[in-house]
Nucleic acid binder design. Structure first.
Lengths: 199, 199
DNA sequence: CCATCTATGTAGTCAATGACAACATTTTGC
DNA sequence: GCAAAATGTTGTCATTGACTACATAGATGG
C-alpha cells in the first residue's frame, strides 16, 4: 500500500453518511437520495452503507429521528431565550417551530411521512413526542400561573402543536402566497391563546 | 386477429392509469408506485404510459391535483349538509377535512409534498387554493353575521385551514396516541372559534 | 374517398438503483 | 494470540424511468 491510500476501514462511515444524506436531502429531496451516490461521495464501495443501514428506509428513519431530536433542541433553546412568562414562551415556540420547518422542509416531510419501517416507527414517533412534551410543559405552566383556563394540558398542547405544524407545512408548500409567515404565525398564536384564556 | 384480442388502442388508458395509480398509492405508498407496474396492470406495453404522462412526476402531479378537487368537493358537501350557521359549518369543515385526510393519507402527503414539477406546481397550488377559498367564504359569512370579530378573512381562514391540516397530519402519522380524533378536532375548532369571537 | 397528419401504442435499449451473496480485512474481547 | 464480530469490497440480479425508432389507429380536410 502506498502511504496516500485510505485505510480499509473508513472509521466513521455512519456519521458521514448521515451528514451527507441530510444535505443531499434538502438539496434534491427524498427521491434524490441514493445509497450508492452517498457511498461514492464517502469514497467507499457501493455496498458499504448496508453495514450501517439495513436498507434505504433505515437511513431515512435515522434521519427522521435525528430531525426530531434537533427540532426538540431548537424548541428548547427558543423557550429558554424567551421572556420568562407563558405567553411569550408560547409565541417563541411557534416561531421556532416554523423557522425549523422552513429551514428543513424535506426533513420535516420525512419526519411526519409515516412511512417508517415497522420497528423504527415507534422510535420515530417517540422522538416526535419529546418535541410535543415541551409544549405540554408550557401549557401546564400557563395553567398554574392562571394565564389560561383549565383543561387537559396534553390535549391543549396537541392542538397547539398541530396548529404550528399546519402553518409550517403550508408555508413550506408555498401556499401562504404573499402572506408573511411571521404574521400568520403571530395571528395563529394570538387567536389560539385568546381562545384558551376564556376556557 | 382473433376476436379475443384487445384493440391496438386501449381507449381510456389515461383514466385507467390514474384510477389504478390512486389505489396503489394508498396501498403501497408513493414509493410503491411504478409506471411499468401500472402499464402491466392495464395490459399495455411498458412505454405506453409515457404518451399520457411525460414522466413519473407528471402522474403524481395529476394525482395531487385530482386530490385537491375531490377534497374541495368533500368540503363543499359537508358545509352544505351542516346546520345553516357559521359555527356549525366551521365545525363540519374541520371534520370533513380530517376525515378526508385519514381516508387518503398518501394522497394528502402527495398534495402537500411540494415536489411538483416547475410547470405543474402552479396548477396544484391553485387547486389547493380552491379548497381554501371555501374556508374564506365561511369566515366572511361569520363576520357578516357578527359571530366573530373583524379582521382579514383570508388571514383568518388561512390559520383555520392550517389548524385542520396540522391535526390531520398528526392523526395520519399516528401521533395522536389514544386521543380520539373527533375530540381533538372539536377541541381545536372550539378553541379557535372562541379566540375569534372576541377579536 | 382517400392521403396525410396526429394521437396512441409497441419493442428495444441504457444507466442507475436497491438488495443480496460471497469473500476480505480489521478490530475486539476473551 | 486467537476466535468472533464489525466493517468493507466485488460481483451479480431484477426493477425501474427514460429515451429512441417504429407500428397502427383515428381524425382531418382536399
Amino acid at each position: 500500500m502506498s502511504a496516500a491510500e485510505q485505510p480499509y476501514h473508513h472509521g466513521s462511515l455512519r456519521q458521514v453518511l448521515l451528514a451527507r444524506a441530510e444535505s443531499t436531502l434538502e438539496r434534491d429531496g427524498v427521491d434524490g437520495l441514493s445509497l450508492r451516490q452517498l457511498a461514492r461521495e464517502a469514497g467507499v464501495s457501493h455496498a458499504a452503507p448496508s453495514k450501517h443501514f439495513r436498507d434505504r428506509q433505515a437511513l431515512l428513519d435515522a434521519l427522521a429521528e435525528s430531525g426530531f431530536r434537533r427540532l426538540t433542541a431548537a424548541l428548547e433553546r427558543a423557550v429558554e431565550q424567551a421572556e420568562p412568562h407563558a405567553r411569550a414562551r408560547f409565541a417563541a415556540l411557534a416561531d421556532a417551530y416554523v423557522t425549523f420547518a422552513l429551514a428543513h422542509r424535506e426533513l420535516l416531510a420525512l419526519m411526519y411521512g409515516n412511512k417508517h419501517a415497522p420497528g423504527a416507527a415507534s422510535q420515530v414517533v417517540e422522538a416526535g413526542h419529546t418535541s410535543m412534551d415541551l409544549t405540554v410543559r408550557i401549557v401546564t405552566e400557563a395553567q398554574a400561573a392562571g394565564d389560561i383556563g383549565p383543561g387537559d394540558a396534553s390535549r391543549i398542547a396537541l392542538v397547539a402543536f398541530a396548529t404550528f405544524h399546519g402553518i409550517a407545512t403550508l408555508a413550506a408548500g408555498g401556499m401562504l402566497d404573499d402572506a408573511p409567515v411571521d404574521e400568520v404565525v403571530t395571528a395563529a398564536s394570538d387567536t389560539f391563546w385568546r381562545g384558551l384564556a376564556r376556557a
